[in-house]
Design a protein around this nucleic acid. Sequence first.
DNA 1: GTTTTTCTTAACACAATCTTAACATCCGAC
DNA 2: GTCGGATGTTAAGATTGTGTTAAGAAAAAC
Lengths: 227, 227
Amino acid sequence: MNEYLVLVVEDDKPIRNLITTTLKMNNYRYITADKGNEAIMLSASHKPDIIVLDLGLPDIDGIEVIEHIRTWSDVPIIVVSARSEDSDKITALDKGADDYLTKPFSVDELLARLRVIQRRLMKTDNTSETEFVNGLLRIDYVYGCVYLDSEELHLTPIEYKLICLLAKNVGKVLTHKFIIQNVWGSAVDNSDASLRVFMATLRKKLNDSQQALIQTHIGIGYRMMKL
Amino acid sequence: MNEYLVLVVEDDKPIRNLITTTLKMNNYRYITADKGNEAIMLSASHKPDIIVLDLGLPDIDGIEVIEHIRTWSDVPIIVVSARSEDSDKITALDKGADDYLTKPFSVDELLARLRVIQRRLMKTDNTSETEFVNGLLRIDYVYGCVYLDSEELHLTPIEYKLICLLAKNVGKVLTHKFIIQNVWGSAVDNSDASLRVFMATLRKKLNDSQQALIQTHIGIGYRMMKL
DNA sequence: GTTTTTCTTAACACAATCTTAACATCCGAC
DNA sequence: GTCGGATGTTAAGATTGTGTTAAGAAAAAC
């Protein structure tokens, strides 16, 4: 028996039916979405074990869906896309996709790649919260909102990524290098200066001039304290 | 920079060179094999972090290599093959491959898929000890923190490196030269004096004026005692 | 195309860390 | 005991890392 829940995100109905029919025949449970925002909501509410994601969606780009989900979850994502350019594959994989299939694809190959992921899931089971709370700080990953003492904070995209990274690793000392790689991507320019500026603005917005929440470890990096 | 060791199994020399050159340029370490049996031996002896495997080998079939390695190891295997049939892909994936690229492949895509695997390894790969305990002293390597009697100590980068080195070699006498090489990197002129200063501050922070924890061996070096 | 927001860069002040040097102390050999 | 070499201690200066600000560039929104 197969208990895995798959979220299928695909706006093209024939292809979606092809996938869901295949899944059903192989004893997967599934839910479907035909829009990116719907996919984000469903992955938060239903916590699927695997996501099969088309990149060309009517509302937001599939890459954005990946980025958004990755702020709180490590759920395996298989991209199924008509875009066959190397650059598209590389972008998707670097943004957090686990695999990339080019349309037209063989359903048997999709099934095989699902089994690869299942094999891995059996070994490490991870649950992902959609909300993070620490003292007065609260992050709602699904809506992408941050609250301090119930007041909503306005954070820029980089500030948000930064606080999510710190929150995901609360208690851990994160090196500058690690932070820069995870927030800015593989491009390692001279973001060291930027990082300091962003920390300053984040602390200001969090009322953390005393560094009670975000500590500096000189010569190493930063750490969010568990309050 | 990049510490991952990749085993490249490929009998076609031009392709093998292409792969290894790419790996070298991206700061991977690598070893190569051009036969299946050699690959099996090497993966046992060198324990690579990732294997890139061609299926068409002169002695035994690549599938057999996968099966054999999977009897004892979960090391990620990326298959790179000229066989583009679905059935070949599915067989390889079901036998234990983690990914499958069809020749001719883009080296950039290979690199992206390697990064996907690395991302995964970073999360689960805690092969080494994550914590060190000795008497009242506790070092949490993952969190990068040192505790004495449950109180967190504030250590500078060099102090931290130093105590980690002593801890990893607890019970052993480490020579001055060894310590200096490992903490300061390659040959440094007059760090001998610095080392003494750092030992003093470390002992002060560890409340170890009696040298119960860190012993001096005159003319040789230092040793952390097992308590 | 213009306005607004966000990001990067540079400059500077300040704080933490590291090195160096001078001197004190310990240890073993004689 | 005392001598010499090695180690411990301390403090000052050099070096490096960090926080902060502001201005201009880049990107996004309109």
